[in-house]
Design a protein around this nucleic acid. Structure first.
Length: 571
RNA sequence: GGGCCUGUAGCUCAAUUGGUUAGAGCAGAGCGCUCAUAACGCUUUGGUUGGGGGUUCGAGUCCCUCCGGGCCUACCA
């Protein structure tokens, strides 16, 4: 039994996430967590909301709420949606927690003492109307190069020219449109990660088998131009972790908070501490996952994230951990994903284009989405959601191949033998062949799941379901029942066990459907089928069951067309 | 501009890292079955692997070039 620490990139607090966000981190992380648990490993699966930063403050202002209140409310919404999708976090924390405040300050202090933080004087744009400093991208104006009127303060989207807000002609705030902007001198702390460049470089070189996407992004940042640059880790905001605190090895940081990207990854650790608090456990309970000197040396730590998160997880966060000089557990494997597009374009929050988590659950149960998203996960390149493809996959894979199999077996049994596993008869060569075929595919499925090959796992799982239909067709118990009812009984006994077997192995993908099958079969033995023959004889003759309701309803053409137009966006 | 990823059947994807005749699912065609959610099974039609050139006994895979799609480029998170 191994100990596996799994973290999913933290969803940002300022609204409901779309399906692309879900499939890029939380969902595959959940798949892996569920699989590892059912294989008997000790799993700690952590996620949290990422609550600090300018966008949160602005979203709260828009909602007319104090930011703390807004975040608390949105946290509730996101936690509820996570439940709807069956995300099995051991803890879903908040980066605004007291635990994270304390840990973030702890790391900053250690880094400061190690000489890895320096104070830098910078010029920042302040908006009187908005009453805040504005990040570059919140400033808009006319591009000095091409004359484009909506160039952002960091780059002109029209001519790709790199800009600073000071270069814009007629700059204005994108929040309020205010033009009473002023350049102010302000002091910030920078993390001197350039000093750790070689260390980070060697650390990444020492990792084996990481996705190309992960290492290539990290290498780019390490070696491009002048190499790894230092980063500002503080901001002039109200909402966040205070930079000035007891024991802080620097002064003059009153009124400032840490940059959200500094405290967000630390929340992985803090959320584990929150988990311990929530379960009335002691400090050692969470530290054994994170401190290699306190029990974490045998932990395998896997992170899941979209490609946009890679630099922070391969460089900044490791720099924080290494720079602390303390034995914190470093990540062992980073599984990164490309983007999911929506019907020929990108998901767009502002245009209301695409399907968002709340809308998805209003339409269909979580399992439908889980299956499609995971079986089409953007592992090698960007993937695309289309309603036609979604409809085809759900109807064919879930309703026909799996759902109908459950239905035909249980209903046949009910009509010929009653609602209990029939007795009598014996299995023969055909059943032995089935066991052999299933075993071979099951081992392939296990290999892909271990390797986090999400799509390949889904393909293999579906192929396992198909074996059930093939067997039934060949055995044809509806025929054998007429000539040799005992043989039909043995065949159906096996088929009922096959359904239970499918519920167990499919659980990481479609947990709710699996749970319903198991409940209707009156079985709660979820143990993994190491021995397929034994697993297919688990439900004994005489064991009662009830015929399940339709497991997966088909998506009609009318529904598809309706949803297609509903989610096309406002334009 | 620079870097990285990507282009394989009508659609969505594979191809043991250079090795026989490029494979699956869906869609299409034909046959079978009648237990089942008009479901299932079997058979089958689809490919000059984006174009061109090169290396090699051998290229979807490596190199060059052109074309298309995408991402990143450090203050959005």
């Amino acid at each position: 039994m191994a100990r596996i620490l799994i973290t999913s990139a933290l969803p940002y607090i300022n609204g409901i996430k779309h399906l692309g966000n879900l499939v890029g981190s939380q969902l595959p992380a959940d798949l892996y967590a569920r699989y590892m648990r059912v294989r008997g490993h000790e799993v700690m699966f952590i996620c949290a909301t990422d609550e600090h930063g300018t966008p949160a403050e602005i979203a709260a202002a828009k909602a007319g709420q104090p930011v703390a209140e807004y975040c608390a409310e949105m946290y509730g919404v996101q936690a509820e949606l996570a439940r709807g999708f069956g995300l099995s976090f051991d803890h879903f924390g908040r980066s605004s927690s007291a635990r994270n405040h304390a840990l973030t300050q702890h790391f900053a202090k250690r880094l400061g003492e190690a000489g890895l933080i320096e104070q830098v004087s910078e010029k920042q744009v302040y908006s009187h109307t908005d009453g805040r400093f504005l990040p570059d991208r919140y400033i808009e104006g006319t591009c000095p190069n091409c004359g484009y009127e909506r160039a952002r303060g960091d780059q002109c989207e029209n001519c790709t020219m790199q800009l600073t807000p000071l270069e814009l002609i007629e700059p204005r705030s994108t929040i309020s449109g205010a033009t009473d902007l002023e350049v102010r001198e302000t002091h910030h702390l920078h993390l001197r990660q350039s000093k750790l460049r070689d260390t980070l470089d060697q650390w990444i070189d020492s990792q084996r088998g990481w996705p190309v996407l992960t290492t290539s992004i990290a290498k780019k940042w390490l070696h491009d131009g002048d190499g790894l640059q230092d980063r500002g880790i503080t901001r002039d905001l109200d909402w966040g972790v205070r930079v000035q605190f007891d024991g802080a090895p620097w002064g003059g940081m009153e009124g400032k908070v840490f940059y959200v990207w500094f405290d967000a990854p630390i929340e992985y650790i803090a959320a584990t501490a929150e988990w311990a608090d929530a379960h009335s456990k002691d400090e050692a309970a969470w530290r054994r996952w994170w401190r290699t000197d306190e029990g974490a040396e045998d932990v395998r730590y896997v992170q899941f994230m979209g490609k946009d998160n890679v630099p922070f997880h391969t460089l900044s966060f490791p720099a924080t951990l290494i720079g602390s000089g303390e034995p914190w557990k470093m990540v062992d494997y980073i599984k990164s994903f490309n983007y999911l597009n929506y019907d020929g374009g990108q998901f767009s929050t502002s245009l209301g284009r695409g399907v968002f988590m709340d809308q998805a659950l209003e339409i269909l149960p979580g399992d439908y989405w889980r299956w499609w998203l995971l079986s089409h996960a953007p592992e090698n390149s960007d993937a695309e959601f289309t309603w036609e493809n979604f409809q085809a996959s759900v109807n064919k894979d879930l309703a026909d191949v799996l759902g109908n199999l459950v239905s035909r077996v249980t209903k046949f049994c009910r009509s010929k033998f009653g609602e209990a596993v029939p007795e009598g008869g014996a299995t023969g060569p055909r059943e032995a062949q089935l066991v052999e075929n299933i075993t071979r595919r099951l081992r392939a499925y296990e290999t892909h799941m271990e390797a986090m090959e999400v799509r390949k796992s889904a393909t293999e799982l579906r192929a396992l379901w198909v074996l059930g239909n093939e067997y039934l067709q060949e055995a044809a118990p509806w025929s054998s029942f007429k000539t040799d009812p005992e043989q039909a009984a043995a065949q159906i006994r096996l088929a009922l066990n096959l359904i239970r077997f499918y519920a167990v192995i499919s659980q990481p993908f479609i947990p709710a459907a699996s749970a319903r099958i198991m409940a209707d079969l009156g079985c709660d033995d979820w143990s993994w089928p190491e021995d397929v023959a034994a697993a297919l004889a688990l439900l004994p003759a005489g064991h009662g069951f009830t015929v399940p309701e339709v497991l997966f309803a088909k998506i009609s053409d009318d529904q598809r067309l309706d949803w297609e137009s509903r989610f096309a966006g406002s334009r």
